[in-house]
Each structure stands twice: as structure tokens, then as C-alpha cells.
Simulated assay, not measured.
Amino acid sequence: MTDVDAKLAELEARIAALEGPAPADRGERGFVEYGGSVDFGGPVDWTIRYSATAIRTLPAHDRVEVLAALGHPVRQALVEALLDGPRTGSELAEAAGLTSQGQLYHHVRALISAKVIEQHGRGSYRIPAPKLVPTLIIMTAAADIADVLR
């Protein structure tokens, strides 16, 4: 065994110790990974990886609240408007075609409660940077499931 082979074997052993046993050895079914690198008013890089079997143990209520918040056409319009950066309530109402502040705040409250958007200053809203890539991925995944991307 050469010096390079010994160093490679040592590195492989160290990586295996850090990562633990392979998924098949843990009785898992693999993993789900998503990520992205976008620039919507500033660069955002995001990558996350979950065990495929552990995903079912994540709190269902929180997942359902996010999906319900994003599952309304008006809220989709609000999120799409916010992709270009922070917007005032008036700008959001116009982008979504809403005629009353009550309608706007009903939908904004649902998105804030689900942590998809946040208030940014007085009367202004934005998508928090750490939520940007996951929000885009949910929107893309929904289009993929609906066969829009094919």
C-alpha cells in the first residue's frame, strides 16, 4: 500500500465515521435533499437534506399550515409580488387585485402565521431570506406534481 493509498483509506474511514452507516445499514429508505442559489434583492444559498423516513416525523400541523397558506390563489399572487422584494400593503393589494384592506390583511395574516412572510417595517412585508428558496421549491414542486413542468 502506497502512502497515497493509506491516506485515502484514512480519509474514507474518517468520513464514514462522521456520516455514520449507509442508509441501507440504518434501515432507511434514502434521503431527500433540496437547495438553490438565487438572487432576489440579495444572494441566498440554501441546501438541506433529510432522511426519507424521518420526514414523516416532522410536525404535521406546521407543514399543513404552510401548504394551506400557499394553497390560495390570492396568497400565491402576494408571494409572487414579494419575490421582487418588500412591498407595502397597498402595493400587495394592487398586485393581487384586492379591493379592500380587510381582504388583504386576511391573506397576509395567514402567510405570516405560517411563517412564509413577515412584516418588514411599518406597513411593509417581505419573504425572509431563509424562507425564499424553500418557498420557491414548494411552488416548483407543486407545478411538478401538477405536470406543469413536463
Rank of each mutant, 00 (worst) to 15 (best):
L98H: 00
R75E: 01
E65S: 07
T53R: 12
S90D: 13
F31V: 08
G71V: 01
E19G: 13
R63G: 15
H72N: 10
L82M: 10
V44Y: 07
Q103K: 02
D25W: 07
Q103V: 00
D62R: 13
R87W: 05
G20I: 14
A13W: 03
L82W: 01
L92M: 04
H72R: 04
E80H: 10
P73H: 07
A81C: 12
A77G: 05
L18W: 11
Y34F: 15
A95V: 10
H61M: 08
G36C: 12
L82N: 01
Y34M: 13
A16Y: 02
L82E: 02
P86Q: 15
A54R: 12
T99M: 06
D84E: 15
E28F: 05
L92W: 00
R49A: 12
L104S: 03
A93E: 02
A24D: 12
D25M: 13
G30I: 05
L70T: 01
Y50L: 09
L67G: 00
E28R: 13
R63M: 14
D84H: 15
Y50S: 04
V38D: 06
S90M: 11
D45H: 14
V64S: 04
D45K: 14
E12M: 08
A24L: 07
G89S: 13
G35T: 11
G89F: 01
I15N: 15
A16D: 12
E94D: 14
D39L: 13
P21L: 15
V74F: 00
P21N: 14
L18R: 14
P23E: 03
I55C: 06
E33L: 12
P59A: 07
A16P: 01
I55D: 10
E65A: 09
V44S: 15
T53H: 14
E94P: 01
L67E: 03
E80T: 15
P73R: 11
E19C: 10
F31E: 12
V38H: 06
A52S: 11
G30N: 09
